[in-house]
Write a protein that binds this DNA or RNA. Structure first.
Lengths: 325, 325
DNA sequence: CTGTTAGCGCCTTCAT
DNA sequence: ATGAAGGCGCTAACAG
C-alpha cells in the first residue's frame, strides 16, 4: 500500500525498478484511485484565505457568498476558506494585509490592485510557501501561481463591438465611465474598447474616460454632464460598478432610445435595466464560477495536483434581455 | 451512528422525539457530514445510461466526450455511465431502445424526440423505477424527472434580437434554416425567433423555414437558393447543425458583408466563421456543462438528494469574435 | 425503534 | 527502500 501510494504521487523513496513494476500493475488492472477515500484519509487540512474588498459591490459580495457556500464541499476535502476584508484600493493597506498572512495559510486568493508594493507582498507570500491566486484583477509581474478572471481586454472589445453594431450605422460620440484607471481590469477594458471603436467604427468617436470611483452618485453626475455636453452621444459604456448612477441619469434624460448603453455584471439594477430597455447588453463574468475556480485551483496547488486550465477559464458572457438567466 | 444516519437521510424508523434530539445535537456541534466518507462507504453503485444520437454532430460528440471524462469522478462516487447510440430521429427506434433499458439502469439521460411513442417509453422507464433526464431537447408531457438544456424559445429570441439590431436599421428579408420542424428544440427556436422579428423589427420579414435535416449539403443548396431568390436578404439564422453548408453558400455569394448570419454551437467551422466575419454571432450552450449537469442530476436523483435547480440551469450564451473562449 | 460492527480505499506513521 | 497497521467518517447489515 505505502509503496503504491508513493508511486501514485511521485514521492521519493522508491527504487526505479519497483516503481516501474507498480505502474505496470496499475495499467494491467486499470486501477483508478478513489478520490473519496483519499479525501477521507488525508489528515492535514489546508487553510485558504480570500482577501476581498471591504464593503465591496454586489459582484464582490456574490463571490464571497459563493466562497461561503463551498464550506461543506471544502470540509469534505479537508480544507477550509475564510474571507478577509481589506482596503483593496489602498496599495499600502492591501500590501500590509497580505504581509500579515505570510506563513499562516496554505493558499491565498486576492482581488489585487496592480501596484509595486502589492506585487512585492504577493511575492513574499509565495516565497514563504503560500500559493497565491489573483482574482478578478491580475498582477502580471508578480509570482502569483494563477489568475482567475476574465480577459478584460476581450471584455472591453466585446463591449465596443456591441455598441458599434447596435448604434446601427449612426455616427457620433461614445462616452466611457470607469471606476479608476489605476485599476488594471478597468484600464484593460478601456483599452480593448477604444481599440475596437477607433479601428472598426470610423463613424464613432470614443470620448476620454471619466472616473467616478465606482460610486453611484459620482457616476450619476458624470453621466448627466456627458449627456448635457454631448448632444450627439450615441453610446455609453460603464466599465466598472456604479451602474445605478449611470442608469438614473440616462433615464432622467429620456434619451435611452438614442443612446446604446452597455455595462458590466448582473445585478437587480442591470437586470431591470435590460428589461426596460435602458441597458442594451451587460457583460458578465459569473461570480460563482470565479469563486469555485479559485477554490479548485488553490486546492489543486495545495495537493500538488495538475490544474485543468481549460476548465478554469472564465468566460466573457454577453447578456441581453432575451437571454437573461 | 445508525440513528444519526437515519435522521440525516430522513429514513423511517426513528421516534420523533429521538429525531429532534439528534437534530438539536447536530445544530449544537455544527456537525456537517462528510460526503467523501459517504461515497466511500456506499456499497451499491449506480449505473447510468446516456442515449445519444448515432453519428451525431460535433455538439453531441462533445457531450459524449464530456460524459466519458467524468468516469473517474463517477467512479469515486460509486457510479458509472455508459453511452448508448440510437437513431434519435426515428421515434419507433428510439422508443424501442428506451424500452430495452427498463429495469437495467438507475438513471437514463436521453436526447429525445418529442413523439407519442417516445413519451410512452419514457413513462415506462419511470414506472419501472428508473430516473429519466431529457437532454438538449425536452419531452414536456412525459414523466421525466428533469430537463437539462437551454430554454430554446429564449435562444431563438436572442438570435432574433441580435439579427434585428445588427442589420442596423436596414429593412429586408430574414431567412431561417432548420434541421426539422418536428424536433422540439428547433421548433421552439423558430418560434422565439419569429416572435421577436415580427414584433420588434417591423422593417424585417422572416421568411418561411426551410429544412435541411442538419446536413451540410442540403443546407448549402437551400442557402444558395435563398440567396438567389431574395436579393434583399439582410439576415440569416441557422437553427440547427449543418452550419458548414450555410457558410459555404454565403461565402460563395460574396454577400457576407450584407447578410447578418447567426448560427448555433461552437465548432471549428463556426469559430473560423466568426473570425472571418462570415458569422456575426453564435448562440452557444456549453456541452460540457450539459453533460456534467445531467450526471449531477442523475446522481442526486439516485441518492434522493435535493437538486440545486439554480446551479443546474444551462445558459444561453452569445459568442462573438471578441469573446470567443 | 435503537445500538453494534465490519468494512469502503486511501494516507500516514512507524517498524523493519 | 519497503511493509504493516491504524484510522478517516460514513453505510449497511445485523443484533438486541
Amino acid at each position: 500500500m505505502a509503496t503504491l501510494d508513493r508511486v501514485l504521487h511521485g514521492r521519493a523513496g522508491v527504487r526505479e525498478d519497483t516503481a516501474r513494476r507498480v505502474r505496470e500493475t496499475i495499467d494491467r488492472f486499470e486501477f483508478r484511485p478513489s478520490s473519496a477515500a483519499a479525501d477521507l484519509a488525508r489528515r492535514r487540512s489546508s487553510r485558504f484565505a480570500f482577501v476581498m474588498p471591504e464593503g465591496g459591490n454586489l459582484f464582490m459580495q456574490a463571490i464571497s457568498a459563493a466562497v461561503e457556500d463551498m464550506a461543506a464541499w471544502l470540509n469534505a476535502r479537508r480544507a477550509s476558506a475564510e474571507t478577509i476584508r481589506a482596503d483593496v484600493f489602498n496599495p499600502a493597506a492591501l500590501a500590509a494585509t497580505l504581509e500579515s498572512l505570510v506563513g499562516r495559510y496554505d493558499g491565498v486568493a486576492v482581488v489585487a490592485l496592480d501596484h509595486q508594493s502589492v506585487r512585492a507582498a504577493i511575492d513574499d507570500l509565495v516565497a514563504g510557501g503560500t500559493h497565491v491566486v489573483t482574482l478578478v484583477s491580475d498582477v502580471p509581474g508578480s509570482r502569483r501561481h494563477h489568475y482567475v478572471g476574465i480577459d478584460n481586454v476581450a471584455a472591453g472589445r466585446t463591449a465596443g463591438s456591441l455598441i458599434g453594431r447596435f448604434v446601427g450605422g449612426r455616427s457620433g460620440k461614445v462616452g466611457v465611465v470607469a471606476g479608476s484607471r489605476s485599476l488594471r481590469d478597468h484600464a484593460e477594458r478601456v483599452f480593448g474598447f477604444n481599440q475596437v471603436i477607433n479601428l472598426e467604427f470610423p463613424g464613432l468617436t470614443a470620448l476620454g474616460v471619466v472616473e467616478g470611483g465606482d460610486r453611484d452618485e459620482a457616476n450619476e453626475a458624470l453621466t448627466a454632464r456627458l449627456l448635457a455636453e454631448q448632444p450627439d452621444l450615441v453610446g455609453l459604456y460603464n466599465v466598472g460598478a456604479g451602474t445605478p448612477g449611470v442608469v438614473k441619469s440616462l433615464a432622467d434624460s429620456g434619451r435611452e432610445a438614442d443612446v446604446v448603453f452597455i455595462a458590466h455584471d448582473l445585478t437587480p439594477v442591470t437586470r431591470r435595466g435590460l428589461l426596460r430597455g435602458l441597458l442594451d447588453a451587460v457583460i458578465v463574468q459569473d461570480p460563482g464560477h470565479e469563486a469555485r475556480s479559485a477554490i479548485r485551483v488553490l486546492l489543486s496547488l495545495a495537493r500538488r495536483e495538475p490544474i485543468l486550465a481549460e476548465q478554469e477559464k472564465i468566460r466573457v458572457e454577453i447578456v441581453m434581455r432575451d437571454n437573461l438567466p
